[in-house]
């Protein structure tokens, strides 16, 4: 694994934000009643959500083609936890508790240690 900084790794931050918005759509659909299991998956929100995730995936493939290492890409992608915590509060009123903040901080700390040291 190369230790030199590869700026293309920042593409993973953009990809994780797109993926976080897609999760909002998926959760929205999962929280709603559906007539059957088929409609649970084949509805506008789920299809749009996975469409966004596909776009996010293409961004990742492009970043990997620019010689971003798999480990670096994966840890940058984990920043999605922060986007999710904020967007889940704004969208679903899931509380941002002290433990969630501490837990996600530890997760980010782990990511930084993993990636930079």
């Amino acid at each position: 694994m190369s230790n030199s900084w590869n700026p293309w790794v920042l593409l993973f931050l953009a990809a994780s934000l797109i993926a976080a918005f897609s999760q909002m759509l998926l959760k929205k659909s999962a929280s709603e009643p559906h007539e059957n299991i088929i409609k649970e998956y084949l509805n506008f929100k789920v299809i749009a959500g996975y469409g966004m995730m596909f776009a996010s995936m293409l961004v990742c493939v492009y970043a990997y083609s620019r010689q971003v290492s798999m480990q670096s890409g994966a840890v940058m992608d984990a920043f999605g936890n922060i986007w999710i915590m904020i967007l889940s509060f704004l969208t679903f009123r899931e509380p941002i508790t002290k433990r969630k903040i501490l837990g996600n901080s530890l997760i980010i700390a782990g990511i930084v240690v993993f990636n930079l040291f």
């Binding site: 501490l102 837990g103 996600n104 901080s105 530890l106 782990g110 990511i111 240690v113 993993f114 040291f117």
Partner: peptide, 8 residues
């Protein structure tokens, strides 16, 4: 790093 993530 992985251990920190696990604790998180």
């Amino acid at each position: 790093g992985i251990l920190l993530v696990f604790c998180g």
